[in-house]
Write a protein that binds this DNA or RNA. Sequence first.
DNA 1: TGCGAGATTGACAGCGCTGTCATATCTGAT
DNA 2: ATCAGATATGACAGCGCTGTCAATCTCGCA
Lengths: 319, 319
Amino acid sequence: MSPITVSRALRNPDMVSDELRQRIDGAVNKLGYVPNIAASRLASSRSHAIGVIVPTLYNVIFAEFLQALHEVLLPVGFQVIVVNSRYSIEEEENAIRTLLGQRVEAIVIVGVNHSKLARRMLIQSRIPVVEAFQIAPEPIGINVGLDQIQAGADATRFLLGHGYRRVGFVLGQRDERAVERLRGYQLAMEEAGLFDENLIFSQTGTSSIALGARVMSEIATHAQLPEAVFCIDDNLALGALQESRRIGLKVPGDIAILGFHDLEFAACASPSLSSVATQRYEMGKLAGEYALRLLNTGKPGERRTVKLDHSIVRRQSTP
Amino acid sequence: MSPITVSRALRNPDMVSDELRQRIDGAVNKLGYVPNIAASRLASSRSHAIGVIVPTLYNVIFAEFLQALHEVLLPVGFQVIVVNSRYSIEEEENAIRTLLGQRVEAIVIVGVNHSKLARRMLIQSRIPVVEAFQIAPEPIGINVGLDQIQAGADATRFLLGHGYRRVGFVLGQRDERAVERLRGYQLAMEEAGLFDENLIFSQTGTSSIALGARVMSEIATHAQLPEAVFCIDDNLALGALQESRRIGLKVPGDIAILGFHDLEFAACASPSLSSVATQRYEMGKLAGEYALRLLNTGKPGERRTVKLDHSIVRRQSTP
DNA sequence: TGCGAGATTGACAGCGCTGTCATATCTGAT
DNA sequence: ATCAGATATGACAGCGCTGTCAATCTCGCA
């Protein structure tokens, strides 16, 4: 029984005879043999791995995105290697280097603003690259995202549409996506001739329920309360909502609150939270599918932008 | 300039002359050369990788745990390979196989109940194994965990200590840790002669704020309301809290609510949420440190159990 | 009975790096 | 000028698998 036969029996069980396969399976089990993937990758020059770079694991939207990627890629025999860039440009570069070192066959990356070097590495790698979550002005390859600027503007216009004039914007750290939504907000406010920097409320820190509460408690100290606030995400929004109620502000009577992403809990908050619904799962699914398609068609360089819809879910926290 | 010299220049820059190093760096940058990690692993028979198996990425407690592991392991040159077992025994086996195939140098795994095969694979691998989050009756190697049974019992006794007799237990899916906390609850209730199966409220599904709200809304339909509920985690607790308020139940007047894990938002809920504080970050840090220690001392088989404390944080949702 | 197509199995070399040991080069003290 | 000892570079083989192609076997059919 030669090594090559064992290799075949393990990879394509139906290419060898039943008897042999059973003998091999038995030996494998008894010895606890596990093939060395590094050797396999080296010999076949295929890694059967796809790399994903996300900025954090603390935010459930990325968990949803990853879940979808897993569901698309694992069944067809790809490993998914997740690397966390912690919202840092340098760590993103390192992440890319790590993934290229692993010879991943495609890279899915959250975000569209990369360092010069990162961009060059991605392009030079000649493997399919999928940029996700935003719309890239100059996509490297495939781009599956949400028009964050548009979504920010739409959310703002929705609030303006109720006649509010002092519409605030609440955010935590200014990551790429936050900045784009903020730009959308600014556009809409300027369009209405109502933009005022003092209506932007932020505190440093990862966006979370607790941070939302803190920002709202700060807002409440202002002489003139905004009539409505658009929160960069539902965590901030829920925190803001809870804090509002705690200090006796009626929502939406005294202040209307609009969130973003329409996380599961938005519907069951009290009052329930209006939010901009986005499709993270769908985005992951598409990202995975496009990566696979490029891999199969052998056109790693193909460019294409897929824009996913968003919609405003009106609940009790806004009129 | 021979390949081996390049290899050295890249790995130990100060083993080669300045001039050569610069020449090599230049070429590397120009060509976009990235070493093939598979080849490196094969040649050196070291993967510089540590595997981690978590049941889900949706729960922030595992993100915290992972974060700590990353912070311990990345700076000393280890890659962290995260695999998601989705609360499934079979997927856990696959995860172990995948990691062993990668020749990870140690495995950190959440949970202590593994299939026979999984256990055997872990033991036969002869690499350091760290089981986390619970206390293992028969640890494979290192065990860094929290006494979930004790914690469940303590939480229950805390509520009983306020004179409540009908203390309920709220949970979603019955994963290992949930089951242990439930056992602790049952112990404490039986001890007080108050155990009643009808006080266990559960709905299938990942525990989330939304699920907590659903369970509470079901509880509210019961003729006789429990006086207090211990929720398996803070997500359920917050959902229960919100739903209680929504339907007009006073917390803790009509029903007291106690959560678990003391997530960041517990403090800013309204009323603020009492909870059992646990140390996920510390657990990850210790898990990483022990893995490293075993790797360095070369005693992969060493056994040791490290029990982390928990404490009850009393806030407004309980008296 | 003999032959060829298809099914099984095997030999060989090489994937790209690194451990080991050997060689070349340089330094400064004698 | 010489040489020990450090410093810098190189040659070689092999890590464990798989792609490729060759060899062998099986069996139906002429």
